[in-house]
Amino acid sequence: MDNPQKMLLSYSKTIDILNKYQLNHVSGIVTDDANELRWNFLKMNKPVVLKATGKTIFHKTEKGQVILNINSPEELDNAVNKIRKTSPANADFEFLLQPQISGGEIIVGGKNDSNFGPIILFGMGGIYAQMINDVATRPAPISKKSAGQLILSTKANAFCEGFRSIKVDRKILENFVVRASKLIANEKKVVEFDFNPVIVGNFGATIVDAKLYTYSEDMIL
């Protein structure tokens, strides 16, 4: 039997699910129209970030499809051109324009394991997540108590203790992990997800990049 191809949920379906589980995320504008981008850019707090988005857009950073620190309309135009160049001509993608926030970078993920069922993953995030490899997992859904132990078991715990100027309320982060674990346990059509990075700080925890994976065609539109 062929393994079906995992696909990314569409942006709007992704946002619906994040809202359903009360998972904070950076709002953004999705469009393929450069004029619309410019118009929205003027209304936003700077700097902003421009990314490619689409059902087959997986490794954005590696492919140069994430442009950070955009402060002026000229920089925005350059960013649009760069992303267009890096994306194949027939690729099915749009632009995602978001305000850029800073803080500690963590990863929260979920997947379905063939032996243990749905699991939740937590740890150090960002583009070096795989290199640092400081993550831990638990079966999902997770209790608040176990979420606390999960956070304590990785170095990302330092963001709760306070590291440099970054400090996130432990309770807020625990709740975030609990809700994310409910997502993977309850949403049968979501087979795996990555929130990486989730930015943490005194404002709480905010998902900057959410990828939800599915095998169901109806979830990608």
């Binding site: 990863i107 243990f116 699991i119 993953l121 993550v135």
Partner: peptide
């Protein structure tokens, strides 16, 4: 794996988390 979670949550990682629980 084409996702971070897929690559990071290997079989032993998942097993270990389950045993902790």
């Amino acid at each position: 794996a084409n996702s971070h979670t897929g690559a990071l949550a290997g079989d032993y990682q998942v097993f270990f988390g389950a045993m902790k629980e």
